[in-house]
Nucleic acid binder design. Structure first.
Length: 148
DNA sequence: GCCAACGTTGGC
DNA sequence: GCCAACGTTGGC
């Protein structure tokens, strides 16, 4: 899962009560579908810092609550307000995540791009990718952690 | 700050 | 349903 460290980085998550937070504000259908349908309690997730001096994977978190409606879509005062999301039929979903640990070093996008063979068809290193939540296979997960 | 890539919107 | 215009993302 990507986030901009200036807005909400792993240090923010770490200092939240119980070190957990809801992942609100995702307004992309592919990412929404993953949170609504696929991410399960106990799943581990890489925390990726985007739009910053060193974009890359900085830590690990865990899904602690499965997909449920993103209430910020109903709030006209929220910057994530979406009048087209009806509380009776919510358009946007989120999960809750909990901080697990920070990696010993940032595994940068630049690093990851060197391992196209090992990572195969990994969404993160595909050109032009903008998806903010993307699947990681077991083998990709293990390989990435081996770089730590 | 630039700009390529991509998603969404809306006129037709 | 097509597609041009526009907005956003995110690396650099």
């Amino acid at each position: 899962m990507k986030s901009e460290p200036d807005v909400f980085g792993i240090e923010h998550l770490k200092t939240m009560p119980q070190k957990r937070e809801h992942w609100d504000g995702v307004r992309n259908y592919q990412a929404r579908n993953m949170m609504r349908d696929e991410m399960k309690k106990g799943d581990l997730v890489f925390f990726y810092h985007s739009n910053c001096p060193e974009p890359g994977i900085v830590g690990i978190m865990e899904v602690v609550k499965e997909g449920y409606p993103d209430h910020t879509a109903f709030d006209p005062n929220s910057k994530y307000y979406d009048p087209k999301s009806d509380p009776e039929d919510p358009r946007w979903f989120m999960v809750d995540v909990k901080y697990r640990r920070t990696l010993k070093r940032t595994i940068s996008l630049q690093d990851l791009k060197q391992y196209t063979d090992e990572l195969g068809d990994f969404a993160l290193i595909r050109k032009g990718n903008r998806l903010s939540i993307m699947p990681v296979s077991k083998s990709q997960w293990d390989f990435i952690l081996s770089l730590e």
